[in-house]
Amino acid sequence: MMRSFQRISGSATLPDGLRGGVVAIGNFDGVHRGHQVVLERALQEAARHGVPALVLTFEPHPRTVFQPDTPLFLLTPPPMKARLLAELGFDAVVEQAFTREFAELDAERFVMQMLSSDLGVSHVVTGFDFHFGKNRQGGPAFLMEAGARHGFGVTLVDPFRDEGAEIVSSSRIRGLLSEGEVAQAAGLLGYRYTVEAEVGHGKQLGRTLSFPTANMALPETNSLKYGIYAVRFRRADGTLHDGVASFGRRPTVDTDGAPLLETFLFDFTGDLYWQTCRVSLFAYLRGEEKFDGLDALVAQMKRDEAEARALLASVTPLSPLDRAIAF
């Protein structure tokens, strides 16, 4: 990760040292392989001109503002998105507050106020279908023309298709994760799907069964399929452990509990409470089950551990980003 990476709250607070850079614009939820094509073009342009490389994104996701009653499964909440962008080599991410008032900003004002005045952009890189401003009035042609008037370059990037010639999209990846298809999702992300949360207290039943777990509450909107996963667990100090994780409601022992991600770390003893840790998912082993008693549950947990150990012993990084996040 770049040591000087900054998360900046709004374009108006950009430090002077980051003005005049190349800016990639988009929501980039997931920072998937399609996004990475856009982001890599921005990095290349910044390196070519020796200027800062920035990302302009919008928080919360605009869909949550326009459709507040429709939950959105965010692949990468802001801290995880920032971590991924830093690993890719950007200098900063500008997290612009997206409100209904901001959505009323017309396209010309967006260009003049944010891009030209606040950020002082030298070049903008975005996807071919990027629209902005009130009623989405600003499109690719408008952005190109505005760039010519305000003195910055514009690069539009065509959609990225996977090996099956399908467009890689955040919604497609959300669907795969909701079905437990974490390996397919990783192929589209370019890295293993990873969640980050604080480790809290559970009922400590796992400890009495010789399977102590690190318990993490994921956002309510996370629609990852309930079940058992082979995972890598990164502690707050950066130490990495293989493990097996259960995500769900624990039907054998807890009939009305909230969903939890419970990870049993292999070959680890220690206290993880209140540390912010990350879990990278490598494989879906099985669905959540209700067992006839604790003995049957423990027997299955031992089988899950053996399967996860064998699977994780042979994994290799999908990309430099995957190596940085999950290896």
Rank of each mutant, 00 (worst) to 15 (best):
M1V: 07
T13H: 12
D16T: 11
V23L: 04
G26I: 04
H35M: 12
Q36F: 02
V38D: 08
R41H: 15
Q44S: 10
R48K: 12
G50Y: 07
G50P: 05
V51C: 01
L54Q: 01
V55D: 01
T57G: 10
F66S: 11
T70I: 11
P71T: 05
F73T: 00
L75C: 10
M80P: 00
E87S: 14
R100N: 12
E104H: 09
E104Y: 01
D106M: 11
E108N: 08
M112W: 02
Q113W: 00
M114F: 01
S116Y: 01
S122D: 03
H123G: 02
H123C: 15
V124N: 04
G127Q: 10
D129K: 05
F130I: 05
F132W: 02
A141R: 13
E145T: 14
R149N: 07
G151P: 10
G153L: 13
V154N: 01
D158K: 09
P159E: 10
R161C: 14
E163K: 09
A165Q: 14
S171K: 05
E181K: 11
Q184A: 15
A185L: 02
Y193W: 14
E196F: 01
E196V: 05
F211I: 12
A214T: 06
L218D: 06
E220W: 06
V231D: 08
F233H: 05
D242R: 10
G248T: 07
R250H: 11
P251L: 13
P259W: 02
L260P: 00
T263V: 13
T263C: 12
F264V: 04
L265E: 09
F268I: 04
T269A: 14
T269I: 09
D271S: 14
L272E: 00
W274D: 14
T276N: 12
C277G: 04
R278L: 14
V279L: 08
L281C: 12
L281E: 04
A283M: 03
E288Q: 08
E289A: 11
F291K: 02
F291I: 02
D295F: 10
D295K: 15
L311I: 10
A326G: 06
